[in-house]
Amino acid sequence: MQLIPCPWCGDRDEVEFHYGGQAHLVHPADPDALSDEEWAGYLFLRDNPAGWFAERWSHAAGCRRWFNVLRHTVTHEVYGAYLPGEPVPVIAS
């Protein structure tokens, strides 16, 4: 089981969390202006990298707040959590 670092509650078992998929999706500014292809992209196309992935988690069985986590999809290593609205952390090499 992965330990997910909730920014408010600290490290907790993954079972306490709900996964929200890719972070930093932006709702279209002018939805009426979108073509069908652009709507399809907004609704259905998500990044699916084998590597570092900025994703949303919700501490569903805890403080119930949403936040973002930078996590590696092959090793499951967690680089860290950060608040919604903050930029993706830069990974120090």
Binding site: D13, V15, Y19, A50, E55, V74, H76
Partner: peptide, 13 residues
């Protein structure tokens, strides 16, 4: 398992 992964393994829960 709920999260994206290419790790060919999941959580024991």
């Amino acid at each position: 398992d709920q999260y994206n992964s290419y790790g060919r393994r999941g959580g024991f829960h």
